[in-house]
Design a protein around this nucleic acid. Sequence first.
DNA 1: AATATGCTAGTTTTT
DNA 2: CTAGCATATT
Length: 796
Amino acid sequence: MSNFDDSDAFEAAAAPVPLSQRAMGVRPAPYLDELNPAQRDAVEALDGPVLLLAGAGTGKTRALTTRIAHLLNLGRARPGQILAVTFTNKAAREMKNRIGRLLGEMVEGMPWLGTFHSISVKILRRHAELIGDGALHLKPSFTILDTDDQVRLLKQLIQAENIDEKRWPARQLAHLIDGWKNRCLSPAKLPQGEERAFDGRGGRLYAAYQRRLLELNAVDFGDLLMHCVNLFQAHPDVLRGWQDRFRYILVDEYQDTNTAQYMWLRLLAQAHRNICCVGDDDQSIYGWRGAEVGNILRFESDFPGAQVIRLEQNYRSTPHILAAASGLIAANKGRLGKTLWTEAEEGERVRLIGHWDSEAEARWIGEEIEAFHGGHRHSVGRRSLNDIAILVRASHQMRAFEDRFMTIGLPYRVIGGPRFYERQEIRDAMAYFRLAVSPTDDLAFERIVNVPKRGLGDKAVQKIQVEARERGLSLLEGAASAVATGAIGGKGAGALRQFTEAMGRWHADALDSRVNHVELAERILDESGYTAMWQNDKNPDAPGRLDNLKELVKALEEFENLQGFLEHVALVMDNDKGEQSEEVSIMTLHAAKGLEYPIVFLPGWEDGLFPSQRSMDESGMKGLEEERRLAYVGITRGEELVTISFAGNRRMYGQWQSSLPSRFIDELPEDHVEVLTPPGLYGGGYGAAAQPFAQSVMHERAARADVYNSPGWKRMQERSAQRAQPVHRTPVVIDAEPAARFSVGDRVFHQKFGNGTIMGIAEDTLTIQFPTGFKTVKAGYVQPSSGGGALDDVPF
DNA sequence: AATATGCTAGTTTTT
DNA sequence: CTAGCATATT
């Protein structure tokens, strides 16, 4: 709520802080004494550009929040003049709390502490009319579409263009457009050639999509940033106003900024240059979604004269853990470089263990956890399950642990996973609320018009769309009109009339301040038949969905009305359930960033899984380095004991596949690692587990000079080269397609994956190696490749 | 219009 | 192998 009580008038903010207030502001600063020298530098270097390189566990949030407190305490700025940006709502909340704690209740909430997106919304609402062209522009009440809406909109546009949705799925286009928006490329600015992506129509569809969004008075997440940047660039006066307002700028997790966020910051900071960016280049793990490590690496040249302050004293982990992590990350090139140190006691070395297969791995980790929990391991003592985390590379790895823990009755919680507001039933309910609040929300209408089933299929919806378009109405109005004119008859008509009439009542009630909005929400769900739909559903997950709906209604209580709730939810999609009970945490490495646990397990360190084959195929060395940073993030989550493991065999897509230990294992510094022999492998030194590691450690020293020439790397390259040269050439005739004869080894072309080589044939199913990896594809989806293939002379 | 079958793809995730 | 989607069937 405090997010929106920005009491300063826009113009007033530009005025300097009165002297009287400045003098009054200077108070003793006891908080400074609690900082180490580097943190203190970070807090006191208030003017000019500052890059704060904060390694894992070095008290970065403390430095950042103290810096804000110091700015306020010295009277350098009022709360409304500090811009503090984070990536997640969670981080923003945390900072707010800690600033409040530092300053007591003396300071009103900071109106401009928030995520890039929430701050952008506030800015855009004030200048909405400037977005778009003269004829069509945003209104301040614009709605924010989530990914789901975005994809459904794109799907409509793709259908309108008569493009084969199978070969060109809307998701892919959404991804492409997101990528463009991350780089602040509006349709007009797409570089030569890029607009040809997506079957040559990417640029056109992008432009159509943007136009449609304006028509709907809507923006997607990417727009929030891009529109802001465009606004600043096109209207220097507007930019000037915001530059004057934000006297000091602070940015958290700077290594995760994408190009649009970078431009956004640069524009706002370029006048006074009071910008402090906090980040750790070694923890940049979001390159795949547009983050540019380059932003942090370039900081000093972007802001000449910048001070660089390193936070290197680590308060989290033991020396062995730090050394293992440091040794690993040292293999990356082009780092800014940091040396983490600690005063903590030495502790145990990082443990490494190999297992026969992924099930044995899960079994062993389960036993270890039981031992820790029962206090059977004296070096660590009896531990709460809340102290223990399992961090995996890919979510499918979680299943082995869930299965195992379920059978042995070990309580666990999965962190991440599908979020509350992304669940189907929640989205449906929200669509009802959206439509009740704004009857012109066509996307919400489409989502729920036939949920629960009202006998209205594609054809009926199409009729409604035609009706609405012809008369210039919203879909809801169009539906009412279609019923009235008899365009829709039969069974659907009655249900549709009921629906539109009920929606009319709900809308009136939503606007009526005398109607309690929580009761209204309940009534909407009941009268629409939505609750009944799940009550009658015999799926085992139906009761859970009903619970979620109850929870949603309960969440409404904290808001004034439905409008306020919807505005909030559009931006704050997180749901942190406080940890109540004792549970082991299971999550992906990405989800673990920023968290810490005394005991950490890192399973699945196998080449291809971690580092992920796909990362390496798609992004080569850059991808590998990002994977290595992910490994670094994983190890540095541990406070006391970190255990890395790998399995020689793993079930993938229903088949057992054998794999080699991760090359990252080769890169761990030997002195800080203890190799364990799993129970059941008597004598050690043979079998799938200990032996490969023992060998690889022997190579390790020599390999250190250049890991990309390491045995592991070469081994991989050799293997993929071998795979690319199949021996058999068995001609296969695909029925009813006389021209489509394929043999193993043929070069073929696939609309989506491009050129590839056939590696295997079963009936009409081909296994093909594409640049992006192996795919199994029906023969009908590929053609003989035109370039350099063996079948060039086959008539087509 | 609702349900059954068939196919394909299959990391990481916030806003 | 399996979820999610798209097409085929009733």
